[in-house]
Design a protein around this nucleic acid. Sequence first.
RNA 1: GUGAGCGUAGCUCAGUUGGCAGAGCGCAGGAUUGUGGAUCCUGUGGUCGUGGGUUCGAGCCCCAUCGCUCACCCCA
Length: 423
Amino acid sequence: MTEKIQAIRGMNDILADETGRWQSLEALIRRVLEQYGYQEIRFPILEKTELFAHSIGETTDIVSKEMYSFVDRNGDNLTLRPEGTAGCVRAGLQHSLFQTGVQKLWYNGPMFRRERPQKGRLRQFHQTGVEAFGLPGPDIDAELILLCARLWRELGLDDITLQINSLGSAAARLAYRNVLVEYFTGHKDQLDEDSRARLERNPLRILDSKDPDLQNLIANAPAMSGYLDPESADHFAGLQELLTGAGVTFTVNPRLVRGLDYYCKTVFEWVTSRLGAQGTVCAGGRYDGMVEHFGGKTTPAVGFALGMERLLELADLKEPLDSRPDLYFIHAGAGSEARAMQLAEQVRDAHPSLKVILHCGGGGMKSQFKKADRSGASLALILAEDELARNTVAIKHLRRDLPQREVAWPALPGALSELLMNV
RNA sequence: GUGAGCGUAGCUCAGUUGGCAGAGCGCAGGAUUGUGGAUCCUGUGGUCGUGGGUUCGAGCCCCAUCGCUCACCCCA
């Protein structure tokens, strides 16, 4: 047997019976973002590998083992984007967006990471990202968090909790890093294999470990809060004040460090316990150094990303409006098909918002009625020998107990207006 | 990359100590030659994931392999 062709592992199809829920989620998010004055930006799925390596960090798991990278025909190293922030910054830089003051941007689309798929984690997954450039204060951090809180409210999600932390300035982070290395080196015998490797490459991540044997050691580790530079400490205090004032409840989690290297100062994560092992629905933070790092002028920046698949699993979303057709046009007998097609076009001209299915594929009246019923249409239009001879169309109610009518062809659009106004 | 569980019809799943591969749903047709839904009848459906082994005989036992799922790791 020839092997059935299959999608790549972890890259799922979203079929027609699911796209309605996607559309309503996307529409809701778009509406809220526009409410806050954010504008959509679109940038490529493919970028030069160095863009991600230099922003996310060479030693992070994403860059070191999870990227879909390949060599282009001209020798360029290209990578399917594992996240959106880097591409957004690149686009902003390339088009001098950061010269003109504040930019509040959002984007939505597929991201790619070559991990082992599991619940809430795919190799191609979808994120909505929101980024704000040019604002240094905690006010914008708070606005982003309030925006998220509004989304959860609108989605009817009340079991997502907020965790925040501050990583401090680059210098403070470096100082803290040294303290941590010293501490963990002193307890090297207690560390597991992964954590020992991280001691060299990314010691902050040890704080994130879920290994139960390490929890005691981690709990006693020196906390970042003790090493914050004054400016970052003020910023963090300011953020907490704003959140409290806005009535947002949060937990300060001193071990929240996030997996991407570019974060500084504020980091935050919205978490649920309803999703198994992948409980993070939304996460982000401040990355003041990135624009400058790529050659732009010093530009403060904050952003976050939403995991669309994870959100879809949580939210009880309805199909947008009614996906069922309004009319199902049945026709039979010589000459009926061309005439029905003509009439269907006239109905579509007169009523652009109606869904009109013209029966295709032949078959008897009985089977056409069956299909009309299964389509969910509220009305059937019938054009067979009798009607054709009389220059009329019959209109039959499929959902209500009302008598069948017969109207002359020119009167069809008008008759439909009447009927649909009564529905 | 590591570990565990699961692969039988388009879908959901039965399948006894190893003995003729099944049901429901769906789809198609009919009972009713121009009228759907409820009911009844008929039909359509499969290299039992794949390859090997044990056996007179394998969906079932053994080995390998691929795929899916969940978890670790990590992350949205």
